[in-house]
Nucleic acid binder design. Structure first.
Lengths: 335, 335
DNA sequence: CTGAAAGCGCTTACAG
DNA sequence: CTGAAAGCGCTTACAG
């Protein structure tokens, strides 16, 4: 059963497709089309259940009204919340979102970026992976609407929105130091991406200026499985016996809590804990975990606004197109 | 800067667009195009960074290679995992996924369904909301590839995949009864959707057959905010003093744990807990929460397979197109 | 072996 | 006030 097209309606009412198109696009009065014809067309379209073929519209207008969103992993709470807010915000501007997860895999990331291009998305929202640099430069060169999130490349002049990673980690470290912890550890993932480097550098800085002097850092492999990482953390904690630990991502924090439980340490008596990113788990955990919460909604909203600005929407005004937003430091019982 | 098109390449190598199209689509030998021309075209396409315009391809072929996925809420762990698996599986069959969250709002659900239709998606994967019945019937009538997930409408003859809700709840109830609990409560949301009715009916059944006889049920409003629901649960628990409670969704379970903590009850001594759906939170909670885990990946995979079958992919074989999968009962320390 | 032409379903300048 | 025509970028039957 074929769907009805503009032409079908035109034939039924005895008008030309162009006239029907004008009417259906609300340009009837502008084109001074008779009220009578207008009503007839509207009624027929409704009765026949006419739905415009957006693919044809896109080909003709060059606009798909689709934004491409690439996140690291949609099953991760942080990225899922980000995606949700972006979806809601995009909708307000009349855009739909096509998403995918890169898994932080360069090959997959690059392929997805090209796929979005082939699909003619109007704009790109990307948490980039290493290896995407060349393709991103291409987009920038072609002046495609593009906003990076969570991380960026210093050498690529693209818009971006991220949390103030250094400031957040410093806040956490100062809190630990003020509370008198002397052996503060940092557990992160092995990664060349800037947001992780910023967090790590801030830890190193803070330690350098503290009395502790000596770093206590563990870097685990991003692609390791649950068990491997839990074991690595367990070994590290047993060997180094820190009195406080800062986990660099929510993913690590969750695995870390399992390690801590496995060893039988009591938080915060044996070990104080702060985690980057908030999560229901950290709020519900006993004791509640102190966190450096990313302002997820603000990140998403800012990114969409910058993108809409690039897309020529003049209802939005933006101050900068490279933005760092402050994290919220939420103190619970773990410190 | 305009992107290069087929025609551009044709002009550059001095061949016709059709020939270039055949070569780029790997039909060179089939069309007996000279090796020389083929190589020239391939090289030029590569050099110019040619990327086919998928919108034009879609309009011409009638296939978008996009699947539409409507979930209740992408920020909810269960639906995010579902979406993730679907995305991965769809990719293996060469499809991309366009998703959106319905928020269980009929108006939004219907609008999204129409939007997907306008976008010419090749197939639909939907966790339907009430109010979508008419539009879904239309899709079925037009023989559009469609698979419902998590819930369905008994009156609509569409394919669906869901967990065996009744079986899962019965398993949980039997476990409670065997352990000797005498005042087993059920906390669910007010909903006309079948998966919630199945869970509720199973509870009522189990109670009817038990010595308890009297139901202890709380139904909260889906759209209530966190605080309201937490308060309602708190009131309910204080007033009825159950010795065991089964939460009908992960969302409720999380809020319920907050209520329980607020009242100061000890799990399982004062109150035993089972929750529908698993979640990192339940695993990490102290004590660990016993759950009725939905086989999320199997649900997603089965749904994709049925959809691919409908799309005429003959690499997949399916047994039924209305499927119920067993839940995994994971006993932890809360019962 | 290769090219010219039609057509997917729209929108929009142009003509009357 | 309304219609005929071109064109978005492809694919594919048809012709030679």
């Amino acid at each position: 059963m074929k769907r009805v097209s503009l032409k079908d309606i035109a034939k039924m009412v005895g008008a030309s497709p162009s006239t029907v198109s004008f009417i259906l696009n609300g340009k009837a009065s502008q084109m001074r089309i008779s009220e009578e014809l207008k009503n007839k067309v509207m009624a027929t379209a409704k009765k026949m259940g006419y739905q415009p073929n957006q693919v044809a519209v896109s080909l003709r207008t060059g606009q798909t009204k689709i934004l491409g969103l690439l996140v690291e992993d949609i099953a991760n709470n942080f990225f899922a919340s980000l995606a949700k807010t972006i979806e809601v915000e995009a909708e307000e501007f009349g855009y739909k979102v096509l998403y995918s997860s890169t898994e932080n895999n360069s090959k997959k990331g690059v392929e997805l970026l090209r796929l979005l291009t082939q699909r003619q998305v109007d704009g790109y929202l990307v948490t980039p992976t290493l290896g995407m640099e060349e393709d991103l430069e291409m987009l920038v060169k072609h002046k495609k609407p593009l906003v990076l999130m969570d991380r960026y490349f210093p050498d690529i002049d693209a818009a971006y929105v991220q949390v103030d990673n250094a400031g957040a980690v410093l806040t956490g470290m100062e809190h630990f130091i003020k509370k008198g912890y002397k052996k503060i550890a940092f557990i992160t993932i092995e990664s060349g991406l800037i947001q992780m480097r910023q967090r790590e550098d801030a830890y190193v800085d803070a330690i350098g200026k503290s009395e502790q002097k000596k770093k206590l850092m563990l870097k685990v492999n991003y692609n390791g499985d649950r068990e491997t990482i839990i074991n690595q953390i367990t070994e590290f904690l047993k060997k180094n016996k820190p009195d406080a630990v800062l986990f660099a991502t929510n993913y690590l924090g969750i695995l870390g809590l399992e390690s801590i439980r496995g060893i039988g340490l009591t938080i915060p008596r044996d070990l104080a804990v702060i985690c980057f990113d908030d999560n229901d788990i950290f709020r519900l955990h006993l004791p509640g975990i102190t966190v450096l919460q990313q302002p997820v909604e603000a990140i998403a909203r800012t990114a969409i606004h910058i993108l809409m600005h690039q897309l020529g929407n003049n209802k939005v005004t933006i101050k900068k197109n490279q933005v760092q937003l402050a994290a919220n430091f939420i103190v619970r019982e773990s410190t």
